[in-house]
Design a protein around this nucleic acid. Structure first.
Lengths: 351, 351
DNA sequence: CTGAAAGCGCTTACAG
DNA sequence: CTGAAAGCGCTTACAG
């Protein structure tokens, strides 16, 4: 007999009908006992007890599929990430994901993590098939994903997703964050500060704002910014040490890059912070545990995730709610990777 | 009119009935066109075309909930983690998760990550409600979780989960891995090697095997093992430097601990590897990027995840398949955190 | 080649 | 206080 034969219950498990039959009551009664809080449950106590006995006896557990169909709620939330590098090397993604998991489960929601980068058509498919009660985007999303969420009326909260304000959106104040870092460095006495934009061209507003704010802060302080750099960290460090600009401090776009920076400076024999100050964004593992620990502009992960879950649940309750954009501020955490430049000329030594 | 009123389709979206009505055909026909591969689809080409036009015109996308109920397949896989610290500080969990996501989606499966540590009753609930076609456990699981999976007949593959062989299980050869590390260190000439068991008592077989293999390797080489240590890394380092044993090399139980070790050695003014060699398990971020990069015993993540997905899909196709336990071997990756001990006495300097 | 009907496992007005 | 019936959106023998 075929495995999926129509009359065999799922993996041999009892259904609500089996329970009803077992206790000689109706499915409706069983359903009420199981779903209504005791104080609002119209079922008489002895009847209630009978149901519970049968449930126990059969080891019955309601099928989520049946429930989801009848209720039109799956209690699942898509947490969407578009980064082609996977989740690892990103800004405080890890912490955000962990927090989200916690907070969502407190309100009875389950996150499923979906990667929407190119080459994953199933992601698009899933976002469109009623599987999720809502969506939390941790990234800028491609246009097709945005269109899909929109045409589906999926309650969605975008987190730093670089979208127009027709979406409910949580953004980060990268301008203020970068300024904090720059003021710290300039206050320490640095005159030549280099900015490392990372491995690849990044058109996300965070990338653009951080780079331009860096240059702006330099000019505002009467200093000359370095030429822009995108590429491998080893090249960046070689240029910093051997090139004409001779920075005494570095601002890295992301923690992953900063960790590489520390390693390459070590390879080239420079000490941090004595020979070079290093800073970056996002206070994530292992940024506080490097040698030396890194000074960073940090995201308020707790606030962000709490707010995101709150906005999302509001949107699920009331899908027609006005979209809004809220901005969260970054904070400066000073650690041991920054210090005043050396009193000598302070430049990296050649080769 | 209430949001969940029975005749309002989900979020206003068209159903298969709407499509059928729109093209003047039956639901059965629409369903066939949508689900059967063209070559096995009995529907006449012009009819087919009509259906497709209507689907397009209405923007119809099948409801997964309806499908799941009718098919008894959700195509979702629970990826279960029991670690109370969350996913971050664990052995190559991150890489495993990323790989799993990739591989599962290639076979049309979607992972949902579930934390089963105490205080998360919803996890248990979800594992029991037919939501998942199968389960992948990344950890030792509490007995109630095991019982639930068993009583539910959930096809499950355990990964290093410390279970009896009534389960399909992938284990790691920690004994061989630890031996690799110890032989490397002893071959370098180290006579006093300390083992750091981590922050807390850990009864997982991996922890036990690594600790006992460490001691065994020492004795086999005619060397005296250090006393066992469990606790904060700073204490471990203080003891290593100030205590009587005076190790010249350290084996850390996990990368998180090793990263702390590097930082505390730096704080105490010791150089790695000149004053102290450091090694650990799991080749995960940032272990190759620390200063200096760490020598590790690594897990074959790619093999593990491929095998796990393979075994799981087999189990889903054929739930009565014999359980089996397979062991994967660890490999040694030598980096710059290990070197011969100093020719002098080699002990850490006091205070 | 196409469709009517029953079924998947649940919930929810509604009637009694 | 309890239950019969219809419905959620789909699929699948089966009949024609």
């Amino acid at each position: 007999m075929a495995e999926l034969d129509v009359n065999i219950p799922l993996r041999g498990r009892p259904t609500i009908s089996d329970v009803a039959r077992h206790c000689g009551l109706s499915k409706a009664t069983v359903s009420k006992v199981l779903n209504l809080p005791p104080d609002q449950c119209p079922i008489a106590e002895p009847t209630r007890a009978k149901v519970l006995v049968s449930v126990e006896a059969l080891g019955y557990r309601p099928s989520w599929q049946g429930r989801a169909l009848a209720n039109r709620r799956t209690h699942m939330i898509a947490v969407v990430n578009a980064d082609p590098y996977g989740a690892l090397p990103r800004g405080q993604y890890w912490e955000i994901v962990d927090q989200l998991d916690d907070l969502l489960s407190q309100v009875g929601l389950v996150p499923t993590f979906i990667h929407t980068y190119a080459g994953n058509p199933r992601a698009i498919e899933m976002l469109g098939d009623q599987r999720f009660d809502g969506c939390l985007s941790l990234d800028a999303q491609p246009k097709d994903v945005q269109d899909l969420l929109r045409s589906n009326n999926t309650p969605t909260v975008m987190i730093n997703a670089d979208v127009d304000n027709s979406w409910t959106n949580l953004t980060f104040d990268d301008k203020a964050g970068t300024t904090l870092l720059m003021q710290h460095l300039i206050g320490l006495g640095h005159k030549r500060i280099a900015y490392n934009a990372g491995r690849r061209v990044n058109l996300h507003s965070s990338a653009i704002v951080r780079a331009s704010t860096y240059a702006q802060c330099m000019r505002d302080a009467g200093l000359e910014p370095d030429r822009p750099f995108v590429g491998p960290v080893s090249e960046f460090i070689d240029r910093a040490i051997d090139g004409p600009y001779k920075p005494t401090a570095i601002v890295d776009f992301e923690h992953w890059t900063a960790v590489h920076t520390l390693q390459h400076l070590w390879r080239r024999g420079l000490r941090v912070p004595e020979d070079m100050s290093v800073t970056t964004f996002n206070d994530t593992y292992p940024v506080a545990l490097t040698v030396p620990p890194l000074t960073v502009a940090a995201l308020p992960v707790k606030l962000i995730t709490e707010r995101a879950v709150q906005l999302l649940t509001e949107l699920i309750e009331n899908p027609t709610r006005e979209p809004r954009t809220e901005m969260m501020s970054e904070t400066l955490i000073v650690r041991e990777s920054t210090a005043p430049p050396k009193v000598s000329n302070g430049a990296g030594r050649p080769g």
